[in-house]
Structure formats: structure tokens, C-alpha cells
């Protein structure tokens, strides 16, 4: 019933982009993530799956230190991107987040024009020397977000006026505009209808050419459709992490099998 996973030859030439080792996350007294170690590869879509509350989103938010904005959250263990520990005191989360972009569950365009939504990141990071360059960056990002054709005539219209699927692609384009190396997506399709979902999934597959993509989803079908690697989380533990095809056809852990076949979750 699942799509056949993508051919495996693409995973042959891979290098590790993010390496997490023994990561623990606490929300106050609550131990939300226990001992998670995982290696995320470049030019690969990695899916985090698991029942709600299993910690997959929390772990995702550790990867670009979005949890810093929550006062009671505490992270232990090492997360290395290109060999640099991102929780090192010398690392500025602002720089980190430019390198590790994020797309959220609900489309959250700023109440600004489409153009300004995209240009926001490049502007704050000082990526363009002049207006023409900025225009260029915006166009390129919108094209990569596969939404250019739909909005090129109304770049000054407010971003909030787009449909749900368009908004989410706009948010992806916005994340892409800062030229990140990793793209984190927290259930990017959960607020979208099936047609918009299909468009976004197609986009994710294209984005793999340039970035390491990590996607959290509770749809197993979606994980099977878009990812090459899958990590299954359960109650804060990383239960199993392997090639998507392996997880969905021949899981090693009984919990993974139970989840995939719909007995838990």
C-alpha cells in the first residue's frame, strides 16, 4: 500500500551533515527526549515519525535551537553540524538558524507583502548588496518554492491573502531564501488539503538536491513517499533509524512494526 521508496543509489554518496549524540531534553521536570543519537545526511530527506507526544517535534526544534525561546527547556548532549557543536557557547543561535532553516506546522506568513516575506531573511542577514540582487534572490526563492508562477504578478499583495497551500510554499520559499544548508519541516502538510499536500511533497523532493531536509510527520504514507531515511520515535526514545524502505518493509523493532501496522499510535 505504500509507494515504493526511492532507489537507494542516491544514498550511496552521502556525507553526514548533522550528528546528534546522547541528546536529552527536559521541559522543567519532564524528560522529553531520552538518549537520542542520530546522523542526518546531506541531500537526503529524513523523516521523523511516531505517535503524537513522542518527542519528534521537540527533537527537531533542538536542531536549530528553537527551544531557546522556551524558558524552561534544557538540552544536554552533543549536536554537531559540520563538526561544530551548535550548543557551544560561542555559537550564535541567530547564525545557526540562518544555516538551518525551519518551516512550521501551520503556515505563518508575516502580515506583509509576498515580496517582503521572502526578502525578510536576506535583508536581516545582509545578503543582497542592492535592490536588483534582492529581487533576484526573491525570484530564485519563489521559484525554488514552486510558487513563482502563481504569485509573480502580485508580489506586493499581502502574504496572508494566499491559500493555505500557497502560504506553506511561501513559507518554504522564505526559508530557502536565506540559503540554508539544512531545512527542518515540522509537519508542513498537516494544515493542508490533499492537493496542496501533493504539491508540497513534490517540492520537498526537489529541495533534496540542495539541502539536507528533515521532516516531521505523523502520516506514515507521507514519510514513505518523500523520505529516504526514517527515524521512529516513541515516548521520547529513538526506537529505530534506518533507510525508509527498510523501516516500512522490514522493521527490526517490534514497536516500529506495531506503529506502522496501526496497532499503536
Amino acid at each position: 500500500m505504500y509507494d515504493i521508496p526511492h532507489p537507494t543509489q542516491e544514498t550511496a554518496v552521502t556525507d553526514v551533515k548533522i550528528k546528534a549524540k546522547d541528546v536529552q531534553v527536559y521541559y522543567g521536570d519532564n524528560h522529553a527526549i531520552k538518549d537520542v543519537s542520530v546522523e542526518i545526511e546531506n541531500n537526503t530527506v529524513t523523516a521523523f515519525i511516531g505517535p503524537s507526544g513522542c518527542g519528534k517535534s521537540t527533537f527537531l526544534r533542538c536542531l536549530n535551537r528553537m527551544n531557546d525561546t522556551i524558558d524552561i527547556c534544557r538540552v544536554e548532549g552533543d549536536i554537531l553540524i559540520d563538526g561544530d557543536d551548535i550548543y557551544d557557547k560561542r555559537v550564535d543561535p541567530v547564525q545557526l538558524r540562518a544555516k538551518v532553516g525551519m518551516v512550521f506546522q501551520k503556515p505563518n506568513p508575516f502580515p506583509k507583502s509576498i515580496y517582503d516575506n521572502i526578502a525578510y531573511g536576506p535583508r536581516i542577514h545582509g545578503m543582497a548588496r542592492n535592490k536588483a540582487e534582492l529581487d533576484d534572490i526573491v525570484e530564485r526563492a519563489l521559484r525554488r518554492g514552486a510558487i513563482w508562477e502563481e504569485v509573480k504578478d502580485r508580489l506586493q499583495a499581502p502574504g496572508t491573502g494566499l491559500s493555505g497551500g500557497q502560504q506553506q510554499r511561501l513559507c518554504i520559499a522564505r526559508a530557502v531564501a536565506t540559503e540554508p544548508e539544512v531545512l527542518l519541516m515540522d509537519e508542513p502538510c498537516s494544515a493542508l488539503d490533499p492537493i496542496a499536500t501533493a504539491q508540497v511533497e513534490e517540492l520537498i523532493d526537489e529541495l533534496r538536491q540542495n539541502y539536507a531536509v528533515v521532516i516531521v510527520t505523523h502520516s506514515m504514507q507521507q514519510a514513505a513517499r518523500v523520505s529516504q531515511k526514517t527515524a521512529f520515535f516513541h515516548l521520547g526514545n529513538l526506537v529505530e533509524y534506518d533507510d525508509t524502505s527498510k523501516i516500512f518493509t522490514n522493521p527490526e523493532d517490534s514497536r516500529t512494526e506495531s506503529y506502522i501496522t496501526g496497532r499503536i499510535g
Binding site: D82, V91, Q95
Partner: peptide
């Protein structure tokens, strides 16, 4: 011109 290409540990 993108600033984030350097190492993370140097601001």
C-alpha cells in the same frame, strides 16, 4: 555574500 558559510563557532 552569504555570511553563514563560515564556521558556526566564529561569529
Amino acid at each position: 555574500s552569504a555570511p553563514m558559510k563560515g564556521r558556526l563557532t566564529t561569529v
